[in-house]
């Protein structure tokens, strides 16, 4: 009896402490500071991040970039909080409500996990304006909710084509953070783009975790292990659609002397400096533009509820050229881009 209890105690403590260090992110010290030189009537914006939070160099950081831009250009006051892996629905609701209680009456919720909580909290606080990234479902819809969604499959199609044009082994890879419908859109677009260039190309696909375990978006170690396996298996370019775990993919690429494709942010600019040179291109998802536009619309009194779709035509998704590694194929990629915008190419979403 005592033996089992002690074993259990050690295991329980280990599980809790492992969970505690599962993410590298800490709230930034600057969060909550009032920008200098603004009056007392500054717009107050509260931001609730997805798992991984500010500092993931990818999805959440893209949202953070929009917030930072609003802070410097529009002089808004900000407060940030991020989600914890595996948290209860009530915890998400409570986070949004606490931001409102603290006086931050314009709320940006980053990630589809907030859909239901945004819907409910928005109903309970009709005077507060909300934006939710990655959801356009009836769950979150309301007269005070701006639903920001992206055509991730279109951007992913372009980087898929880039990977196929650049591969020397005719073998590329895809690493998804968590196997959700959202990340499957990235995969579908990437595969379609690569196959459009080389119908016989070999594409390895791997997801780091399965829901409800969302640690796949914030586990550098898991990303690294998966990428090492793929590079050893012969792939020479891997698309990392895995949020903060992408950092591990880049490290593995650097060690293997291969290439990787970033996601959400222009990661050749946001990733750790020593691995930036392995990032061939990034599928940019302009969450920052969506967030900034929302804040600006509130400030200018032009807020509009409903779904705003950021697709290739609207410039909401794109591929990046930082580092100059794809300059030689840019004209080909822009051909595909024009065809997608004109509707000649229909990119699948699943």
């Amino acid at each position: 009896m005592r033996h089992a209890t002690k074993l259990a105690a050690i295991a329980a403590a280990a599980a809790l402490s492992l969970a505690a260090c599962g993410s590298s992110s800490t709230p930034s010290p600057g969060a909550g500071d009032t920008p200098a030189g603004t009056g007392g009537a500054a717009l107050k914006v509260g931001m609730a991040y997805d798992v991984g939070g500010r500092g993931d160099q990818s999805f959440n950081d893209a949202a953070a970039a929009g917030l930072d831009k609003a802070k410097t250009e529009l002089g808004v006051e900000t407060k940030e909080a991020s989600a914890v892996n595996g948290e209860a629905e009530s915890a998400r609701k409570e986070r949004l409500q606490q931001l409102i209680d603290a006086g931050y009456t314009n709320i940006v919720a980053v990630g589809f996990a907030y859909a239901k909580s945004v819907g409910q909290v928005a109903k309970a606080n009709p005077e507060v304006k909300f934006a939710i990234v990655d959801d356009a479902s009836p769950d979150s819809a309301g007269p005070n909710v701006d639903q920001i969604t992206f055509a991730e499959e279109q951007g992913s199609y372009l980087v898929g084509a880039a990977a196929a044009l650049k591969t020397k082994s005719n073998h590329v890879g895809f690493i998804g953070g968590v196997q959700t419908d959202l990340i499957k859109k990235f995969e579908a677009g990437y595969v379609a783009g690569a196959k459009a260039v080389k119908p016989d190309i070999k594409i390895d696909v791997k997801y780091l975790t399965q829901p409800p375990d969302f640690s796949g978006f914030s586990s550098v170690d898991k990303g690294k292990a998966a990428a090492e396996g793929m590079y050893q298996g012969g792939a020479d370019i891997i698309y990392a659609a895995a949020g903060g775990s992408g950092g591990g993919v880049f490290t593995a690429a650097k060690a293997a002397g291969k290439l990787a494709i970033g996601v959400d942010s222009d990661q050749a600019k946001t990733a750790a400096p020593d691995v930036r040179d392995v990032i061939m291109t990034s599928m940019i998802k302009k969450v920052d533009v969506g967030v900034y536009d929302f804040i600006k619309s509130v400030k200018d009194n032009t807020f509009k509820a409903g779904n705003r779709v950021f697709d290739l035509a609207a410039g909401g998704v794109d591929y990046s050229t930082t580092g100059g590694k794809i300059d030689d194929i840019k004209s080909k990629l822009d051909e595909y881009k024009a065809k997608i915008i004109s509707g000649e190419i229909k990119v699948p979403t699943s």
Partner: peptide, 15 residues
């Protein structure tokens, strides 16, 4: 849950 908002500390502290 409120630690990040009121104290600016990661709520993983609770874990």
């Amino acid at each position: 849950n409120g630690l990040q908002i009121t104290a600016g500390v990661s709520d993983r502290l609770v874990l």
